[in-house]
Each structure stands twice: as C-alpha cells, then as structure tokens.
C-alpha cells in the first residue's frame, strides 16, 4: 500500500499540494482526476520521488520512501511521465530492456531476456519489437514505454496521463493493458487521467482533486456522480448507466 501523510508542495508562492493525506489500495487501479492545475501530476511526481515535497512523508508498504535505496525502490515502484521524446535510435526491444536495469545493471541475464519477451508479449508489441522507436506512431511509442515499465516488474506502477495525444484505439489498448496488469499480475496502478469516461470504465477507485486538495476518494461509481463531478469540474454532467458502469455525458447539457 502507498500511503502519504500531510504532503505540501509550493511552486514559488503558489500552493500546489495543500497538506494532503491519503492511501492508495493495493492491487487496484486508482485514477487521479481533477481540473488543470489541481495538483494531480505534482502528487504523482512526489510519490514517485521525481519531485521532493516541501513537507510530509510517503510510505510504501509502511516504509518511508526516504529509507529505500534508489535502486531497490526501482524494483518496487515505477513511473512513466508524459514527456517521452527520446532522440535515440533504439529498437522497441532495446527500450524495453532498459526496464531490467535495476536488476541487471546493463548485463542482461537469461531471466532478464525472458522478462523482456514477456513484457513485449503482454503489451502486444511482438510484431514491432525490432522497429526503431522514432519510427513508431505516438500510440505505439507510448505502448513501448509501457512495455518497459512492465519489464521493470514493479508492484506499483504510476502513469501520468498515459492517454495523452493517443487516438481512441490506442487509448483503449493502453487502458486494457493496465487493467490486465492489475487483474492478471496483481499490480497496483495509479494514473492521472483527464478523460472521465476512461477513468469511469477502467478504474476501481477515483481520487478527485481540486486546488491542491483531495475532494473525493472513493470507489469509482461513488465518485462518478452528477453532483460530485459538478463540484470538481464546475460543469453539469449527465450520468448514464450501462453494463454496470457509469458513462458521463457533459456535452450540450441544458441547464
């Protein structure tokens, strides 16, 4: 379980995270939603040690993050940010192989090779394993990075807007892969996501943030309600229930 206590972060004079505490359940997909500037990405970066909080502590399985060695933490928790413009001529397989670095330090063992193949298979990238990443489409590249995270084989996987700039097909592919990571491999996935319907369809829990604070933290169906979403986003929602999951319409709603 990931637990954070009284996290505060400011950029200059702007308070981005306002003394927030929460815990993220194990073996589930948790989505962080909220309007732009709510602090979602900052929170994710803080949990993943890319960013230091001004105050507060983060615990991974009841051990403070500061007490982990960086290389050990890399075997427990991985993060994928949205900015992945890498100007290197690497094949997909080369890239996925980097996921094994925390284990092998660059010298791949037979087990590493097996893990790499497994990750490529899991992300359904076999047919482009030997393509260069700079020749892939944005969606394919994003899936290659996700395969790298899978090869890293961590219990906790954090992704910052993994669907950014993806078309519908790739967005669904990515979400299904994440779902399978949780259902088949028992991973814990935390994502920052903007499209509320993807969050509603694929995640188990939703944390809604606004102005650096957590306003809702509950099971998906509890958060995806007209009044809660209106409070978070400031617009009206029309909730439709379909196959046991909520779908939100927020287009052309008469008020």
């Amino acid at each position: 379980m990931i637990r954070f206590e009284q996290i505060t972060k400011t950029y200059g004079k702007r308070l981005v995270l306002d003394n927030i505490s929460c815990s993220l359940p194990k073996g589930k997909i948790t989505s962080l939603i909220g309007p732009n500037g709510a602090g979602k990405s900052t929170l994710l970066s803080t949990i993943s040690r890319l960013l230091d909080a001004d105050q507060g502590k983060i615990y991974l399985d009841d051990i403070c993050l500061d007490d982990y060695k960086s290389e050990d933490l890399a075997k427990r928790l991985s993060i994928l940010r949205q900015s992945n413009h890498i100007d290197l001529r690497l094949t997909v397989r080369d890239l996925v192989a980097f996921g094994r670095f925390p284990y092998s330090k660059g010298r791949l063992t037979a087990e590493d090779q097996a893990q790499i193949d497994k990750a490529i298979h899991f992300a359904q990238l076999e047919d482009m394993a030997h393509s260069y990443i700079d020749e892939l489409s944005g969606g394919q590249r994003q899936r290659a990075f996700i395969a790298m995270i899978i090869a890293q084989d961590t219990d906790y996987i954090l992704l910052d807007e993994p669907l950014n700039n993806l078309d519908m097909k790739h967005a669904v592919l990515v979400m299904k892969t994440l779902r399978r990571l949780v259902d088949e491999l028992g991973k814990t996935v935390v994502i920052v996501i903007h499209e509320i319907n993807f969050a509603s369809q694929y995640s188990d829990y939703i944390i809604a943030m606004k102005d650096g604070k957590i306003v809702y933290n509950d099971e998906t169906d509890q958060v995806v309600q007209a009044h809660t979403l209106k409070e978070v986003f400031g617009i009206d929602f029309d909730i439709i229930s379909k196959n046991g999951k909520n779908i939100c319409n927020y287009f052309n709603i008469e008020t």
């Binding site: 993943s48 050990d72 890399a74 991985s78 993060i79 994928l80 670095f101 660059g106």
Partner: peptide
C-alpha cells in the same frame, strides 16, 4: 559508464530505473 546508457533516456527515466 553503464549508467550513462540509462541517463541518455533523460532524468525522469533514470530516476525511475533507480539511478541516483
């Protein structure tokens, strides 16, 4: 030297892969 291969991916990936 081996860490440089990872650092070439950029800071965020390097930190994610456990580099100080």
């Amino acid at each position: 030297l081996k860490y440089l291969d990872v650092i070439a991916l950029g800071r965020e990936h390097a930190v994610n892969l456990g580099l100080n």
